[in-house]
């Protein structure tokens, strides 16, 4: 479903992505691992159009999205979270989720002025869906709290719920469990592992090898912008090149 060919991106001469290619299939969880500065987050930024690539091609479900603006890419069905956790902290949890739904006709000005009834209907439906998602994640009691008042783990969980609200086919999760407690970690692990059953694929950046081994169908190890090793998790973990790179 996602095909990346020879992607290149450099920042002031430093190559963040160097001829990077990979493929993600339907209903699979791909783990993306590698040392800091290997280009993992840059790859997410390039796929979602936050950074423009220098060279290369990204294809998603038959669309060449390399030059698309990010809002167009995201509407096609790619959602992402950020390593530095982004939410609208001054708004209620529910509003954060509502901002992520893909049905945007209720944000059209002509509808707001002339068809308020149709808007409030869509809004009600979305609210219901948002509450269902919160219930699924087990934080429905926080719906009306400001997002900034949630614990760090709950905020990470909320950022994943926001991705679910968009109902994307492909989720790019940047360190979804870094720095959170084991209980929340298991909750997030369950949510992510159920995604392929709902017809979704995931690319996951994570440093926690135990978590990666339990959840991923396939691993890609990257370093200095290139793919060093790829395969089933056991293979990649025992690849001498990977061991060498981590020990360096």
């Amino acid at each position: 479903m996602l095909k990346i060919e020879n992607l290149n991106k450099s920042f002031d001469g430093v190559k963040a992505l160097n001829d990077f290619s990979c493929v993600v299939h339907e209903n699979e969880i791909v783990g993306l691992i590698g040392p800091n500065g290997a280009g993992k987050s840059t790859l997410f930024n390039v796929i979602t159009g936050f950074i423009e690539s220098d060279r290369g091609k990204i294809e998603f479900n038959g669309n060449v999205i390399t030059k698309y603006p990010s809002h167009k890419i995201i509407k096609l069905g790619i959602s992402r979270t950020f390593q530095d956790l982004r939410l609208i902290k001054q708004m209620p949890v529910l509003d954060n989720i509502l901002l992520c739904f893909n049905h945007q006709q209720n944000e059209q000005i002509q509808n707001i002025i002339f068809r308020p009834k149709s808007i409030s209907k869509v809004e009600q439906d979305n609210k219901q869906k948002a509450l269902d998602l919160l219930r699924y994640a087990g934080i429905e009691d926080k719906a009306n709290d400001l997002a900034g008042t949630l614990s760090y783990g709950q905020q990470k969980l909320l950022s994943i719920i926001c991705c679910l609200a968009a109902d994307s086919k492909l989720l790019l999760l940047d360190e979804p469990i870094a720095g959170i407690n084991p209980e929340m970690r298991d909750k997030i692990l369950t949510i992510i592992s159920e995604l392929p059953l709902k017809g979704k694929s995931v690319i996951l950046i994570e440093h926690d090898m135990d978590f990666i081994m339990r959840i991923c169908n396939r691993l890609i190890f990257m370093d200095t912008g290139t793919k060093v090793s790829e395969g089933i998790p056991e293979e990649v973990r025992n690849d001498p090149k990977v061991i060498e790179a981590y020990l360096e």
Partner: peptide
């Protein structure tokens, strides 16, 4: 009517964090 609508929510979200709004697929 505008500020109380979903479009108003979008505007406030832009004020707080543009990157989040871009990531939620809004122009």
């Amino acid at each position: 009517r505008i500020v109380k609508s979903p479009f108003g929510r979008l505007l406030k979200a832009i004020r707080e964090d543009e990157v989040f709004v871009r990531a939620s697929g809004r122009n």
